[in-house]
């Protein structure tokens, strides 16, 4: 399973998301390859899941990967709920 966390610049916001996604996956006891990048690089990648914000999900409309939206990047429960259905 490859997961890409996406933000506008691929510098700060997506790195925060990636670190919290890593934490949640550890808690769930699942293995995945998690990386972060900016929205324009993301369009040419084909991960299993893309995790991003509501706003950037709109710019990624039509992308072949499954897009998962997280609204609060600091809420580990929300991230867990968003991910769980993809690991069952």
């Amino acid at each position: 399973m490859k997961i890409l966390c996406v933000c506008g610049l691929g510098q700060g916001t997506s790195l925060i998301l990636r670190m919290n996604v890593d934490t949640v996956l550890r808690q769930m006891g699942v293995q995945a390859d998690v990386e972060n990048t900016d929205v324009s690089s993301a369009s040419s990648e084909r991960p299993d899941l893309i995790i991003t914000s509501n706003e950037l999900a709109e710019s990624l409309a039509g992308h072949p990967s499954t897009i998962v939206i997280v609204n609060n990047y600091f809420d580990l429960n929300e991230i867990k709920e968003a991910l769980e259905s993809h690991f069952s």
Partner: peptide
């Protein structure tokens, strides 16, 4: 250019 994606939690902007 990229919009408000950095409003990454309720009430918080980075």
């Amino acid at each position: 250019k990229n919009g408000p994606y950095f409003v990454l939690a309720p009430q918080i902007a980075l």
